[in-house]
Amino acid sequence: MPQLSGSAVLAFLLRTVWPILVFVMPETDSTAYDSKIEGNVIFTRFDAALNWVRKNSLWPMPMGLACCAIELMATAASRFDIARFGAEVMRFSPRQCDVMIVAGTVTYKMALAVKRIYEQMPEPKWVIAMGACASTGGMYRSYAVLQGIDQLLPVDVYISGCPPRPEALLAGLMKLQEKISRERSLRRQKPELLEKLEEALS
C-alpha cells in the first residue's frame, strides 16, 4: 500500500465522504468502543453536528435597556428557567456571548454603545430583538428613540409584546434554535478553509 500524504487523505475525504463525519459517542462503562456501528457511532453531516452543539448552548448577552429586561430576568429565573434551552449562561462580557438579547427601548444615546457591544461579540453571533421597542421603536415615536435595532444590527428573531411574556422569549429562543439548525455553518463562516480544501482537491 502506497504511503498516503495528509493532503491526499483530505482530498479523498472531500471527494467521497466530505459531508459525512463520524462522531464516536463516549462509553458509559469501561469497555472500549464496540464494533456495532449502530450502537456507539453516529453518522451525520458536519454542519448538523456543529449546529446541534451551537444551538443548545447559546450564551446570551443580556442587553437590558428597559422593562423588557425584567421579563428577561424572569425568563432566567426558576419559574421559566431558560436553562432548559441551554441559554442560562448570561455573560456580561460580550466576548463570551453568542446571542445578544436586545431587551428594551434603544435610545439614540445608547444606540452606538449597543452596536459596539455587538461588534465585540465573537462570531458566530445572533441577535434577538425582544419587544416592540427593540423591534420598531414601539410606542416611542419621538426624537430620542431609535426606531428598531435592526437599523444597526442584523436581527434574527423579533419578539412581539410590550413587554413580551417569558414564554414569548422562550418561543423566540426556540425559533432561533430552529434557524441555527438550518444554517450552513462551515460554508458561511469558514470560506477560506473551504477554498483551501478545494485547492487541495484540484
Binding site: Y108, A132, R141, Y143, Q147
Partner: peptide, 15 residues
C-alpha cells in the same frame, strides 16, 4: 462615534 438621530416616521404601524 457618539450618537446620531434620524427623523422618526409618524405614520404607519401600531401605536
Amino acid at each position: 462615534d457618539v450618537a446620531f438621530t434620524k427623523v422618526t416616521s409618524m405614520e404607519g404601524g401600531p401605536f
